[in-house]
């Protein structure tokens, strides 16, 4: 077994073609057995992918940027931002200094809290290797197996003129999330132009509440109640340590109502 530290994307692409290659970014989610069974471990840390920047209204986050770097960059630019709210509730300070956005996107564990916000922001993911190119994050999630042999290079999204709500349900502050609720609205002169409502941690990994989204688009939020918007929306959960599936379904409805009210719905 051999460790490699590629210095540029060409070298990375060449190494990704090797049989039995394992990509190591922060490494916090890679078990020792996985390292032992790998033929090649490709460490991403020497690649020039540790950046968080905004260009022409689009955020670009390099794959090796760690969660605390993202929090710092967004707090500096915005103060209050959806990603700050989501990531500050992820793991602990020393782990956030190690967990990279690339690893979190590729593995998409619920505990990273990134899945909901990136889906709601319609993030795109640029990858290097077998499937070289830019893909919707939603596509990467649904076709994860096809992306083996590729590595995340960059995440990008626009957050222009958005209002947001994010919350997560967990037993304690440092516990993994049982589910997350993300609502992102683009509003102009009180009228909702676009809406994304995402619940993660449910039976289907995540659910977009498309019907509810349709109900708010073109409307003024203050003329709708959360109950109107969420009528017919059923998110199913499996039983978890944080509660039974039925309980989590009820609590997620409370969170959705709370979020819509916070964004200006009628009470």
């Amino acid at each position: 077994m051999e460790w490699h530290w590629p210095k540029d994307l060409e070298e990375l692409a060449r190494l990704l073609k090797e049989e039995g290659a394992l990509i190591h970014a922060g490494g916090t989610a890679i078990r020792e057995e996985r390292i032992k069974s790998a033929v090649h471990v490709i460490d991403m840390s020497c690649l020039p992918l540790n950046y968080v920047k905004r260009q022409d209204g689009v955020w670009h986050i390099g794959a090796t940027a760690v969660l605390n770097d993202i929090i710092d960059a967004f707090e500096g630019a915005h103060g209050d931002h959806l990603l700050v709210k989501a990531l500050k509730n992820t793991a602990t300070t020393p782990l956030r200094n190690r967990i990279t956005v690339g690893g979190s996107v590729f593995l998409s564990p619920l505990w990273s809290n990134l899945m909901g916000p990136l889906l709601a922001l319609e993030a795109e993911v640029e990858v290097v290797g077998k499937l070289n190119g830019t893909y919707k994050y939603e596509d990467l999630l649904s076709k994860k197996a096809e992306f083996q042999g590729s590595a995340v290079k960059e995440i990008k999204f626009s957050d222009k003129n958005i209002m947001y709500f994010f919350d997560r349900f967990a037993r304690t502050a440092t516990d993994y999330s049982a589910f997350t609720v993300t609502i992102v609205l683009a509003v102009e002169t009180d009228v909702v132009k676009d809406a994304k409502i995402v619940v993660t941690g449910c039976k289907k990994i995540y659910e977009r509440l498309s019907q509810a989204e349709t109900k708010v688009i073109g409307k003024k939020l203050k003329e709708l109640t959360p109950e109107d918007i969420l009528e017919g929306a059923n998110v199913e959960f499996a039983d978890k340590p944080a509660g039974s599936g039925a309980y989590l379904a009820e609590v997620s409805k409370v969170f959705l109502c709370r979020g819509l009210e916070a964004l200006g719905c009628a009470r």
Partner: peptide, 17 residues
């Protein structure tokens, strides 16, 4: 690690080369 607080039990030594 390079000035950032980390858990050394979660880091493979090779990656801290």
């Amino acid at each position: 690690l390079d000035g950032k607080l980390v858990n050394s039990c979660m880091i493979y030594a090779a990656s801290a080369k």
